[in-house]
Design a binder for these strands. Structure first.
Lengths: 339, 339
DNA sequence: CTGAAAGCGCTAACAT
DNA sequence: ATGTTAGCGCTTTCAG
């Protein structure tokens, strides 16, 4: 496990010159550089990031805090982050944050603060003022994905508008009895995504003068089995069945579709279902969805983090970054046979 | 950003004593320890892992190398790893390894060697002899999940036996025309999982004296859309349609089921499908599967890594770890109406 | 039980 | 353009 001093000795230069030659900081003659580089190569030398970080203060490592790994949206975001980070020469240290308050404190106060990371990307997690203060006091950039938080730059779609958009789509097809099956409103971790989508649905329904009371809303676990269970429960009775459903997420929507098909309900002839996300399984299930690109969100978050790292290592006023991708309804839903 | 010296000053002890009090190494009187600990608490002191690692050589960080993040199996394994690692007080640095050789080299030789990690867990990736030699020469434990590799401890199911088991299950139900839809055999990253499962299928078919030629095998992308596309292509023509399918993975199996249902094929009356994995969506799609528990595999890999870290920091002969969980067929498939 | 001192491997002034 | 020097923040002998 050779050290810089070994390389320097072999190349017959000082440690300082070897360091400059390898890192590219400072003047080194072409010839010495070559000598050092090839010396390093023959010895299989790689810098100790610990030693380097200790003196420079930069770790070339970014912490990603995320509530789930194996849910489609989060997996996509994570992949996007990973790809962009590697391309920038950064490592990614992963912290899955559960809803458990104790564990959360531990991650925030202990793991993230150990000088391990240069910046933090929080996905789908509404950081507390205390957590943000902590990171801010360490002059560590924080980027949020999936919602808005005071004091930090965040990247998100407008969930209210998105839900309103898909609801409008169903209304324009002539549906009148439209249900919303969304996520549990008390899910404490996220950026109120579920309640905002519910609000968007209700906003569109109210504007159209259509009913959207509690009997037309149901909470489900944000997953295919969650949507499936809700679908079975709701669609079994033909008399109370809605003609269309706005699902809180594509995973829920797909679960509903599977349940509907199992009950012998024709889609879209007897039931229209729309979701939000742009899940790659949407075409396979004939799902109409409002497409966003979570992988791209991950990439953008990395870019944002890089900007903050480079341009404002000192704290300056935070910016709100609206998610600039265009959202468009993908897939089509024919008009209902019975309104 | 207080340092140990600040804590020491506040507690009116030396840096050495403060270090001992906080880390628990060495003798410190109860009273001094309390003084130091409370001083640290009031200052919000957290050790610099860089400085600490630099002198101890241990990073309390484990590198996880994985080919995909957003595929069910890999996501589950990753979650298991993450949970267990956090519980052990370790961080997890994530490296997604693509099939691209250049990128792979870079990750292996650069990222993993920078003294950032104490050990490596490779999931679904067949490390090359060179890569293993590299890690070995650094005395870094490596654990593999999902296959076997000479020279390192690995955790895996017996893919041949698993595929034979589900195939036998179909044979015992009276099926004679059984197809296998598996992954691309040339997928260079993995531990030959696909070819081993194909071998297991053929072994069982041969033993039963049933045909299993090339016309009964088809490669598909290991995903739901991959299985869906293969299913549509294969099941469209009733004359060539098999009565049962052994899918290479549950995701493929679910894709096939969705395709079959879309084609109006009754499952299991007209077609039986079995998979391997124990996907949590299996019940929802009425899929019979051979259950393993990838999340548990992740946990076990962490335990294994911990053992190696603690018990043999020096290199000693590697062990093969067969995956000890019992595999059982879950779900049921009724007998075929037409053999 | 506690303190002084050395040094992990590197980078960044400061000299030359 | 290169070398010398002084730490980065911590752990760990070695004394006491």
């Amino acid at each position: 496990m050779s050290a810089l001093s070994d390389v320097a000795r072999l190349a017959e230069v000082s440690k300082a010159t070897a360091s400059r030659a390898l890192s590219g900081n400072g003047y080194v003659s072409e010839e010495t550089r070559n000598r050092v580089v090839s010396a390093a190569a023959t010895m299989g030398y790689v810098v100790s990031s610990n030693a380097s970080s200790l003196v420079t203060g930069s770790t070339k490592n970014i912490g990603v805090v995320i509530p789930h790994i194996n849910r489609w949206y989060f997996g996509e975001v994570l992949e996007g982050i990973e790809t962009s980070l590697i391309a920038e020469g950064y490592d990614l240290t992963l912290y899955r944050l559960s809803a458990d308050a104790t564990e959360r404190r531990r991650v925030a106060e202990y793991f993230l603060v150990r000088k391990r990371v240069d910046a933090v990307i929080a996905v789908g997690i509404e950081l507390t003022a205390h957590e943000i203060g902590l990171l801010h006091s360490l002059a560590k950039p924080i980027i949020g994905i999936g919602g808005q938080v005071d004091g930090i730059a965040t990247l998100s779609i407008d969930d209210v508008a998105a839900a309103a958009l898909v609801t409008d789509h169903l209304i324009s097809l002539g549906h009148a009895r439209i249900m919303h099956i969304g996520g549990f409103l008390e899910d404490e971790m996220d950026f109120r995504v579920h309640s905002q989508r519910l609000a968007g649905y209700r906003q569109a329904m109210n504007l159209a003068g259509l009913p959207c009371g509690d009997e037309l809303f149901r909470e489900a676990e944000v997953s295919m089995p969650g949507g499936y269970a809700a679908g079975l429960a709701i669609l079994a009775d033909p008399r109370t069945r809605p003609s269309a459903i706005v699902a809180g997420s594509d995973e829920v929507a797909i679960g509903i579709i599977v349940a509907a098909r199992q009950l012998g309900i024709q889609i879209p002839a007897q039931l229209s279902v729309v979701g939000i996300d742009g899940h790659d399984l949407a075409p396979m299930f004939g799902l109409t969805t409002l497409a966003q690109n979570p992988k791209m969100q991950g990439t953008m978050a990395v870019n944002l983090a890089m900007d903050e790292l480079v341009e404002r290592p000192d704290r300056s006023p935070p910016t709100w970054h609206a998610y600039p991708m265009s959202l468009e309804v993908r897939g089509s839903t024919t008009a209902p046979s019975a309104g």
